[in-house]
Simulated scan of single mutants.
Amino acid sequence: MRDFIQGLPKVELHLHIEGTLEPDLMFELAQRNGVHIPFSTPEQVRAAYDFHNLQSFLDIYYQGANVLIHEQDFYDLTWAYLQHCHADNVIHTEIFFDPQTHTDRGVAFATVINGISRALADGREQLGISSELIMCFLRHLDEASAFATLEMALPYRDKIIAVGLDSSEQGNPPEKFARVFAKAREAGFLTVAHAGEEGTADNIRDAMSLLGVSRVDHGVACSQDEALMNELAANRMPLTVCPLSNTRLKVFDKMSEHNITDLLRRGLCVTINSDDPAYFGGYMTDNFMAVAEALPLNHKELAQFTLNAIEASFITDAAKQQLAERTCAYLAQHS
């Protein structure tokens, strides 16, 4: 099974680039930029990655981001992630970035997006990995900050395919950002949002109705609502599920309790993603393996996760057809 999964073409739709900051690179950048971090070794950082909920993860996540200051830092961060993609046979990725995490520290928006975009361009040319970039608003901050961030993004419309919503779901419902998302859609951005991770199924409904999202990030709480599950299946509303993240943050106590197999077999457009792999212990192959080892899935079902992700991606129909044919050809070889 590992050999099949390793070679399976993969498409990632839920990846926070700041969440790929591995301890070794964190230390390298801290030294390069003269930034103090409260750890003496990379091993101490790894030991701190023992989370009991989303907030305990976010506390260290934002702390680690302090080492990212210069354009080259963001390039190096993104390039390191693309190397993992290459090793895991990820053929297309759609990456989240959180500008407010950096602009609130005095780092220019241009510094962030130019470093990431330059690495993505090199990834396309040197590694053959296609990509899109999604800008997320931090939902624990206020609406005014989100509007200001949207204004910063407008000159870079050619580099950003969509806007999203991440950070603490509890206490920050979708309606808090309904006006910002409306303006983003008017400006031509697609929209996505985290919903139904720590929050309830109602947040999924509100993300669709109030934010006009093209896909729901996480969305595993949909199983609380039978009617919602039927609606998601009928509409093929994509869910970008992150299995290792869900277990590390105690959304599910263990992988064998995860609902991803049930969602797939109910006909939902569910996908596998790595979320914040440096913090949650696994990139794409690791997430596929964790699901396959804990839950009964055959080759066709595992390949369906990729086909669903291709369907849900923000690429052209022609590009989708090409990636789907590549995936189906691989499956046929291993039937």
Rank of each mutant, 00 (worst) to 15 (best):
E231K: 13
K254I: 14
P296D: 09
E226I: 12
S313T: 03
L263C: 01
S245R: 04
N203P: 04
L263P: 02
E231D: 15
H258K: 01
I272L: 13
S245C: 08
A234T: 14
A207F: 08
G282V: 00
V216D: 05
L232T: 10
E257G: 05
Y283K: 06
G219T: 15
V270A: 06
L307H: 02
S214Y: 12
L263K: 01
T306Q: 05
A207W: 14
T316V: 11
M255I: 04
L307A: 08
T306M: 04
N287R: 03
M208Q: 11
M289T: 14
G267Y: 00
L302T: 02
A221I: 05
D276F: 07
N273R: 10
M255Y: 11
M255K: 00
D276R: 05
L295Q: 07
N298S: 06
D225W: 14
L244C: 00
K300D: 10
E226T: 15
F305L: 06
D217V: 12
L239F: 03
T261P: 04
T261G: 12
D206N: 14
I310K: 07
M255G: 01
M229I: 13
F305T: 04
D217E: 11
N287C: 12
Q304W: 04
Y279Q: 06
D225N: 14
D225E: 15
L239Y: 00
D217T: 12
L228T: 12
T285E: 07
C242N: 15
N246F: 13
F280S: 03
Q304N: 11
A227Y: 01
H299V: 00
R266Q: 10
F314V: 00
H218G: 07
A233I: 09
L228Q: 15
N273C: 12
L228P: 09
P238K: 00
T316R: 13
K300H: 11
L307N: 08
E301R: 07
N246G: 02
E231N: 02
R248K: 15
R236Q: 12
D275S: 03
D276S: 09
A233H: 10
V216F: 01
N273W: 03
N287M: 02
R248V: 10
D225F: 15
L263W: 08
T285D: 06
T316E: 14
L297G: 04
M284G: 10
D286V: 02
E257M: 10
I310V: 12
K300G: 14
N259L: 09
